[in-house]
Design a protein around this nucleic acid. Structure first.
Lengths: 109, 109
DNA sequence: TGCATACATAAGCGCTTGCTTATATAATGA
DNA sequence: TCATTATATAAGCAAGCGCTTATGTATGCA
């Protein structure tokens, strides 16, 4: 891997919001509207973070109906390192389980 | 490790110049004036990169005479991850050996 | 004592980042 | 068909980044 590529990938990761997004995605695929709930952030803000992660090749999108489902790209050259980084981080307070309990989890299967 | 701390550490790493500095330091301790030669950069620019890496706790300084000798902080929580990241990067074109050959390597022992 | 060396720090400047608000697009459903 | 939903995109703006030049500080040496 060259320096520029690693720089771009690490810059994409080194943001608290995006680290949270990646932490959630390390457990399950999610869509934008779920992140706006989980992170209590505006939809454009989340969309822009997703774009940055996608440009770095760290996540994949899959359009399904109105939703775009995002997941970690396991084929990224830094996937293993990323996984060990995410493992060092605590579980976020707001969980996907609590979303389900509140009936806010989208069912896009 | 909390999110803010990892964000600060990764932000410090995710810069091409600083990745090069860390790559050199993964082999041996060096001082500022050697980096100005190795990276062909101004002294203040290097000093400011060092300050950023030090604030993130990634490197240690040791004052010896007029020189400040910098080395990797092996006790940093991300040291192992950092080492595996640096291992993925190619050797820089300009080597410390070439500095020695040109008589530009400082001997501060 | 005086000058050179090694380094730190500060101000300034152009560029990037991450949010906001506003708007566009595309799919779904009554 | 028309409103709703999910998402993308654009413009604008404050804050941060990385360099420059200028200057301060401490050490070593003649």
């Amino acid at each position: 891997m060259d320096y520029k590529q690693m720089e771009q990938s690490l810059k994409a990761v080194s943001d608290e919001t995006r680290m949270l997004i990646l932490k959630y995605l390390s457990k399950e695929a999610l869509c934008i509207c779920e992140f706006t709930e989980l992170l209590d952030m505006s939809q454009p803000a989340i969309s822009q973070h997703m774009r940055k992660l996608k440009q770095a090749g760290l996540i994949c999108e899959e359009k399904r109906g109105r939703w775009t489902i995002w997941s970690l790209n396991e084929k990224h050259g830094l996937f293993e390192v990323l996984a060990s980084l995410l493992a060092l981080l605590p579980e976020p307070e707001r969980t996907v389980e609590s979303l389900i309990a509140e009936g806010k989890k989208v069912n896009c299967n």
